[in-house]
């Protein structure tokens, strides 16, 4: 049915003969499949370019929220001063033993040059949040205007399924509120009162945490995510949550 091809006997045509268009497509495919090597950890099996839907014209028009709040974290700028954590706790009255944001520490003793880095983590305000799907009483929900994942504490039954569902360990049970608590980009404590930054972003002395509107072309967040020259990644892309907290270096 098919003509047999003896590959051993085929002549090598050489790369110089491959048309420019095909070479470009092939390189693109490589870019998408190679993944991003970040501090010894493969964060993503595919380029974050695809994962976050950044940079494409169609998506700019389709941003589901206005403003579409997001945060870009310059991972290499974090010096673990923990001012963000303190500011968060103070602003949002986070009790002892709980946290809405924290800084993780990554040691790479065999790395050349820098051998330690700090990774700030917080709620990723996912576009497809797992926590809101599993909540039996809609106590946690995605704000339809700005996309922030919020809590209605009076409805929380404390089943903690949202804690199980969150791939980022961003939730904890607040005994004082008698409800699960989480980062809401300081919506009730700052944004709704006219502030433009979250408590942690305002407190960061190193320019590590950058907060802004992903749908606003003049925002730094927009400009960082909508480019392909520098790698931008998200945490646990395999969980399919489409986070709004992005990581990069620079």
């Amino acid at each position: 049915m098919f003509k047999k091809i003896d590959f051993d006997k085929l002549k090598n045509e050489g790369l110089e003969n491959v048309p420019m268009k095909e070479r470009r497509d092939f390189l693109k495919m490589g870019l998408a499949l190679t993944g991003i090597f970040a501090g010894g950890t493969i964060f993503s099996a595919v380029s974050s370019f695809d994962r976050v839907f950044a940079s494409t014209e169609e998506f700019k028009e389709k941003y589901p929220y206005k403003p579409h709040y997001a945060m870009v974290i310059y991972q290499n700028r974090c010096i673990d001063c923990e001012r963000c954590i303190e500011a968060c706790a103070e602003t949002n009255k986070v009790p002892e033993g709980g946290y809405r944001t924290r800084i993780l520490e990554h040691d790479a003793p065999d790395a050349i040059g820098q051998q330690r880095e700090f990774i700030p983590v917080l709620c990723n305000q996912c576009n497809i949040p797992q926590c809101t799907r599993v909540c039996p009483t809609k106590a946690t929900y995605k704000n339809p205007t700005n996309g922030i994942v919020m809590m209605n504490i009076t409805k929380c039954i404390g089943c903690l399924t949202c804690q199980q569902a969150c791939p980022y360990n961003a939730r904890y049970f607040n005994e004082e509120k008698k409800a699960v608590d989480k980062c809401n980009f300081c919506f009730d404590t700052r944004l709704s009162k006219g502030e433009s930054l979250t408590g942690c972003a305002a407190a960061c002395p190193a320019g590590c945490r950058n907060f802004g509107d992903l749908s606003d072309p003049s925002s730094m967040v927009y400009r960082t995510v909508h480019q392909i020259e520098k790698t931008v990644w998200v945490m646990r892309p395999e969980a399919g949550t489409k986070p709004n907290v992005f990581y990069t270096r620079g």
């Binding site: 599993v134 039996p136 106590a139 039954i157 404390g158 089943c159 399924t161 409800a179």
Partner: peptide, 23 residues
Amino acid sequence: EIKIPWRMAIYNVISPNLTSNIW
């Protein structure tokens, strides 16, 4: 085990989330 079981009795009825397996 549930932290605030009495809220469950109320909000399971008046605020059901149909995508929730727990519900």
